[in-house]
């Protein structure tokens, strides 16, 4: 892909843990048909039921859904899922890489690790969303996305299944939007329309 085309892409990174699955499925359902974005999902989950999530997501979108393999090319209008038991990193603007180094916040994949990597690689073209969870993972990542000029959305802890994770982020950093899950797709549509 030509460099200027890459420069116009948006990078939508979504982190979720306990209680986030329904929200993620709903978000994916409401994504524009061609979002001109790379969608990256980091979800805490068990190692053994990995292909189920890809199937669940694929039912709800026409966009291709891929669980990332080592050194996989980053393509627009594709939904990428961090594989269980690996951290997902951005190796180059057009390339993912994986890592099985130490867990972060007892998690691998860790939301912080991917958010930080995405923030460093793509700066103000990133939209970060942190959802329900019972873990402190993602807070530092949200702060990094915001610091790098990205747009940050946190699910309103009061309306989240488990408010702990989004609250951790709000305690650490100011964010651009705090919304109930149902209102996130509408905001995304506006954000993705502005190129």
């Amino acid at each position: 892909m030509a460099e200027n085309a890459l420069n116009q892409l948006r990078y939508l990174v979504i982190g979720g843990s306990a209680g986030s699955l329904e929200v993620i499925l709903d978000l994916v359902t409401h994504l524009p048909a061609l979002p001109h974005a790379v969608v990256i999902l980091v979800v805490h989950r068990k190692k053994d039921n990995d292909s189920i999530l890809v199937d669940l997501l694929s039912y709800r979108t026409k966009l291709p859904v891929r669980e990332v393999e080592d050194k996989e090319t980053i393509s627009p209008d594709t939904i990428y899922l961090a594989p269980p038991d690996y951290h997902l990193l951005i190796e180059r603007a057009d390339l993912f890489s994986l890592d099985i180094s130490e867990k972060v916040h007892f998690s691998r994949p860790s939301i912080d690790v991917t958010f930080e990597s995405v923030a460093e690689a793509f700066g103000d073209r990133v939209i970060g969303i942190l959802l329900s969870g019972a873990n402190a993972d993602g807070a530092v990542g949200m702060a990094k996305i915001r610091k790098a000029g990205g747009y940050t959305i946190v699910q309103d802890p009061a309306t989240a299944d488990v408010g702990y994770m989004p609250q951790q982020a709000l305690d650490l950093t100011p964010v651009d939007s705090i919304l109930p899950a149902a209102e996130i797709p509408g905001l995304l549509e506006k954000l993705l329309r502005i190129q």
Binding site: L89, D99, S101, V113, S117
Partner: peptide
């Protein structure tokens, strides 16, 4: 070595 991971190792 892949850069993204290596940088994290040095940071660590």
């Amino acid at each position: 070595y892949a850069r993204a991971s290596l940088k994290r190792r040095v940071n660590r």
